[in-house]
Design a protein around this nucleic acid. Structure first.
Lengths: 117, 117
DNA sequence: TTTATATATTTAAGTAAATTATATATATAG
DNA sequence: CTATATATATAATTTACTTAAATATATAAA
């Protein structure tokens, strides 16, 4: 598993992206999805997930519906129209950030030139 | 300029990468370098930079030397042998994280198939 | 001359974000 | 009856980062 630090700052955008793609998802499903898509390299903890979901809801970016499945209450989250807009913007911003970061990380070191005089 | 949130969790690794590449750098130079490499899309603030430098130094990953340039003291940072090892590991971990994140962000939505029955 | 801009480091105060841990509850497989 | 998987929720703590300000020199412009 990759270090947890890297997910910082990206959680909100990951959630928005998954919801943009899947219409509606419940919390547990989101974490499982991230784990699966990353071959368990990226783990989105519940302690990080739920507060972000609540915040997105309070900002009007998503709405919840509850369903009872197997006698258990399941809370589904779906993007509002505003949430869809924000998702698009955030995703493309993060992609752009990633592109720049990748280029920084892959820069070659200063070449050592051996001059024969 | 891209949102500041995305740099979270990546600062340490960015600094290690730049130092791995440039032998020695001073704080101000590091921020300028990041700004330049990103066409000012990524701004590494001093408030974020210096505490990380001090921490890396306290962990033995880098050492400092001071030089006087234009009557001003300039503090250079360079990786220790241990710092070089850590830099390699961190950089490749962040690259891997980025690859996975990119694939998540670029996933296509669920296809709407129109079946003609 | 004083103003602004660039260079350069440092640190305090506050906040936001995330980690860790725990509680609760049901279902299912062994 | 035990462990594992499913599922949500939240409190306490810690860390990381933002914002802001202090300090100081050099240089160019007005």
């Amino acid at each position: 598993m990759l270090p947890k630090e890297f997910i910082r700052g990206t959680i909100k955008t990951i959630i928005l992206k998954l919801l943009a793609q899947n219409k509606k998802m419940y919390g547990y499903e989101i974490t499982q999805h991230v784990a699966e898509l990353s071959q368990k390299e990226i783990i989105l903890s519940y302690g990080a997930l739920y507060p972000v979901l609540y915040k997105l809801e309070s900002e009007g970016l998503l709405i919840t519906t509850t369903e009872v499945v197997d006698n258990r209450v399941r809370k589904y989250y779906a993007l509002t129209p505003e949430g869809k807009k924000v998702a698009k913007v955030k995703v493309s911003e993060l992609q752009e950030f990633n592109r720049i970061l990748s280029s920084i990380l892959s820069e070659a070191g200063p070449r050592v030139s051996l001059k024969i005089l």
